[in-house]
């Protein structure tokens, strides 16, 4: 086993651990903001590490490009949807008036 493969497996295990923690956080945390916090960050790191590990194990450019793209897309969409969900929930928590205002840009 080469050093690169070892690094790849380490990344895969680390990514799986992050994803497991994200799932655990989603399941056990009490309110929406804490859950989002666990989900968006741990999720992004988990997928990026799994992609990095898989890229190291495969080594071909044709595999690394889609893996990198996947990691970037997950990071970008995770951050944006997390922000959208949090701000929508914040609008609901702070009463309907604010919500009405926010709905009319």
């Amino acid at each position: 086993m080469t050093l690169l493969e070892l690094f790849g497996y380490a990344c895969l295990c680390g990514g799986a651990a992050f994803l497991l923690l994200a799932a655990l956080g989603l399941w056990r945390f009490s309110d929406l903001y804490a859950r989002l916090h666990a989900l968006t960050k741990a999720d992004t790191a988990g997928v990026a590490l799994v992609a990095l590990g898989a890229g190291c194990l495969d080594g071909r450019l044709v595999a690394i490009i889609p893996l990198g793209l996947t990691a970037i897309l997950v990071a970008v969409s995770g951050a944006t949807t997390g922000h959208l969900i949090a701000s929508a929930a914040l609008g609901e928590d702070e009463g309907e008036d604010e919500n009405e205002e926010a709905a009319q840009p």
């Binding site: 944006t80 922000h83 959208l84 701000s87 709905a103 009319q104």
Partner: peptide
């Protein structure tokens, strides 16, 4: 009714 999706969108 389209809500304002904020600065990240």
């Amino acid at each position: 009714r389209m809500a304002d999706l904020g600065p990240l969108y």
